[in-house]
Design a protein around this nucleic acid. Sequence first.
DNA 1: CAGTTTTGTTAGACTAATCTAACTTATTAC
DNA 2: GTAATAAGTTAGATTAGTCTAACAAAACTG
Lengths: 220, 220
Amino acid sequence: MASQTEENYLKALFNLANSAGEVNISELSTQLQVSMPTVNSMVKTLQKNGWVIYQKYKPVQLTPAGQKTAAMVIRQHRLTEMFLVNKMGFGWEEVHAIAEQVEHIHAPKFFERMDELLGYPTIDPHGSPIPDKMGRMKETHYVSLADCEAGQNVVLAALTNSSTDFLEFLNSRNLSLGTQIAIHSKEAYDQSMVVSYLENSKETLSEKVCEKLLVRIIGE
Amino acid sequence: MASQTEENYLKALFNLANSAGEVNISELSTQLQVSMPTVNSMVKTLQKNGWVIYQKYKPVQLTPAGQKTAAMVIRQHRLTEMFLVNKMGFGWEEVHAIAEQVEHIHAPKFFERMDELLGYPTIDPHGSPIPDKMGRMKETHYVSLADCEAGQNVVLAALTNSSTDFLEFLNSRNLSLGTQIAIHSKEAYDQSMVVSYLENSKETLSEKVCEKLLVRIIGE
DNA sequence: CAGTTTTGTTAGACTAATCTAACTTATTAC
DNA sequence: GTAATAAGTTAGATTAGTCTAACAAAACTG
C-alpha cells in the first residue's frame, strides 16, 4: 500500500504526465515543493515498489499500477470536493485544502457511499473529471476562453486552476460553472476580453483570467 | 501542531487516565501496540512539546494543552462516527476504522459543519459522549448490566467496547441503543443473565457481554 | 526483608522522508 | 562545437518514529 507521501508523488506524476506519460524530475520537484535530490531518491523508492519506470537521467513514467493508484487518489479527492460542496454546504473555494487530506483515507466504502449519495457525478465542483472505480476518466475537450473570438457564445465548463484566490475572484464576479458568456471584444494589445453574462452585466477579464477559464462553445 | 502519531498518544492518555489523570508507560505500550522503549522516547518528545508532564519512573499526565488536543481528536472521532451512521447510512459496526483516520484531519470547519448537520449531538453511535468545542464532556453515570439485579428494567445506553465483532454480535441479537431490557434472572454460577426486550424475546447474555453493556435503570 | 517479577530506561540500530553541498550529465546558445 | 546553463545525481546529515538487547528500579510475594 502506498504511503501518503507516495500517493502525493503518484498524483503529481499523473497530473504532470505529457502525452508520452513522461515527467521530469525538476517538474516533480517544483510541483511537490521538495528538492531535486529528494525527488531523485523518492523516485527510486517508487520504482522499487512498482509504481514507476525510471532510468538515470530519463523522465519518470507511471506503471499501470501507479496510474491506477494515482487515479484512485484523484477520484477520492474530487468525490470529496463534490461531497463537501453538494452535501455539506461548502463553497467551491473552501474544499481543496480539506480534500487534500481526505483523499488519503483508506476506506473504499466511504468513497463508494459518497459517490452513491452524490448520484455518481462525473465532474467535481471545478469542472475536473472524476475517474471511475476503474481509474478511467471521461475525456473532456474544452477550450480556453483566451482562445475564443469576439462574437462567440460560450458556457463556463471548468477551470485550469482552483486556487482559493482565483475562486474568490470568480465569486466576486458572480462567475460559476454553467454560466453562459457572450464575448463582445478582445483587446489586441493585452488580450483582455470584454464579456457579458447573467442579466446584461459587462465585465473585462484579463488574459491571465481568460486562460484559466475552460469553456464549451455554443454559438457564434 | 501535534503529529498524527502524537495525537494517537494523546488520545490514549486521555482514555487511560485514572482519577488522578495518571497513565503508566506499560499501559500506553499495550494500548498503542508499540514497545515500551518507543513509548518512553515518545513521552519525552510529548513533554518537550508541552503535551504531558513526566518524570523518570513516574506515570505520565496530560497538560491542559494535552487534554484539550486529546479531547478535540476524540470529538472529531465521535462526530465522524455519528455523521457516518446518521448521514451516510453506515452501520455502527463499520464506522470505527474510518473515524480512526478521519479524526486526524486538520480542518475545524469540516467538523463544525458535521456538528451542525447532525444537530449538535452529545453522544456518538455507541453511546460515548462527544466533547464540546471547549473539550468539555457531559458526565454520564451508567451502570454495567452485569451489576444489575433480576427484576430490574433498564435501557441500553452505551457500550464499553465498540469492536466490530461485539457490535455484530449485538446486531445478531437485535440489541441497539435505547432498547428496553427486562432482567429475568441472573445465574449465580457464571453470572449470565436471562433478559427480554422487544416483542417478548428471551435471550441469555454471558457475563462477558453484560459487562460491556452500559444501562440506565428505569424501574424495579 | 530478600528474592523474584514486573516495569521502566538506556544504548544503539533501522527506515522513511527530507535537506545541503558538491559533482556530473544534458541541453541550449552563440 | 565549445562554453555556459539547466537538470540530474551522489554523498552525507537530520528528524520522527520505531525496534531489540541489556540493564536498572520498583513492586510484589512469601
